[in-house]
């Protein structure tokens, strides 16, 4: 493990692999992370701990430091939340239950979507493709979109999603944020709120609204906030840090790298790696490296 508290470190705790909607496999990502000069990382695939399990098995001494990660999409009456879980026990029952639930959900959604686009637009795919899709850990809109482009049903993935797939309002069951937080805690992990100012897609949550949101989540057991995020301006980072400070929460850093699916650079978290990390970030690192 090459993470050394006394040296300059590049970190990135938020990235995705093919286990969810990234384009690099868990095996590939270790090399990519090392080539980017990152010394400590985590992978937070949507609703799945598979990548963390795999990576832990594959790591050697010369690889960057790693701890388990996951990202749950949650929802309640007040909105949507992405809750990250770090440093959990990969064998924990609590997480198995949640990921099973979310996996079944996604499967149901994927099947519903495929049925819908067949029924409403007559778009069909060869059985093999459908089986491959449903064998994926977390088939989502981008995967179906890519299929549609492949078979000429839409010119681009974005149009496929916007003009066709999104037209079906799939009512799904989301897990509530407290469920995700409790599950992560029960697995010995640290629950962290991902990219605090951005709820979901277009949402912007700042000021008092964000304060209330974090307070509520803290009451559920939230322990950290992803203050350093590729999509944040200096002000958003500052505001998030002062809320983390106010509520005594850890600070984490992440880019939300998705491979070629999104134009985010690995390691771009807005954190200045040449300066001392904030104390709450140090505390987080010590906590998850235990």
């Amino acid at each position: 493990m090459i993470f050394d508290e006394n040296k300059v470190n590049r970190i990135d705790f938020h990235m995705h692999t093919t286990v969810s909607d990234g384009t690099d496999t868990p095996e590939q990502i270790i090399g990519i992370v090392r080539d980017a000069g990152i010394t400590l990382f985590s992978v937070a695939d949507h609703d799945s701990i598979k990548s963390s399990v795999m990576i832990k098995k594959l790591l050697t001494e010369n690889d960057p430091g790693f701890f388990s990660g996951v990202e749950f999409s949650c929802r309640d009456d007040e909105g949507k939340y992405h809750i990250l879980g770090y440093g959990y026990d990969t064998n924990a029952e609590s997480l198995k239950k949640i990921t099973e639930f979310t996996h079944n959900n996604r499967m149901k959604k994927a099947r519903l979507r495929l049925e819908y686009i067949k029924a409403d637009y007559g778009f069909e795919f060869p059985r093999e493709e459908i089986e491959n899709l449903l064998r994926m850990d977390n088939p989502g809109k981008p995967h179906i979109g890519n299929l549609m482009v492949k078979y000429g049903y839409a010119p681009t993935k974005e149009i496929a999603i916007k003009d066709y797939i999104n037209k079906l309002r799939v009512r799904t069951d989301y897990i509530r944020p407290e469920t995700a937080i409790e599950g992560i805690l029960a697995a010995g992990g640290v629950p962290v709120l991902a990219h605090p100012a951005y709820g979901d897609g277009d949402q912007l949550i700042i000021g008092d609204e964000l304060d209330k949101r974090i307070k509520k989540l803290k009451d559920f057991g939230l322990e950290g906030v992803e203050c350093f995020y590729s999509g944040f301006t200096v002000k958003l980072i500052r505001d998030a840090m002062s809320l983390a400070d106010k509520y005594g929460l850890y600070i984490t850093a992440g880019s939300d790298y998705h491979g070629s699916n999104k134009m985010v650079e690995l390691g771009d978290t807005g954190l200045d790696y040449t300066k001392d990390f904030p104390e709450s970030l140090h505390k987080f690192i010590r906590r998850v490296m235990q």
Binding site: Y198, G199, G201, D202, S230, G231, F232, T233, M263, V264
Partner: peptide, 10 residues
């Protein structure tokens, strides 16, 4: 929206 802001930032 926030998605747009992220584009500008990048």
């Amino acid at each position: 929206s926030s998605a747009g802001l992220r584009v500008i930032l990048r």
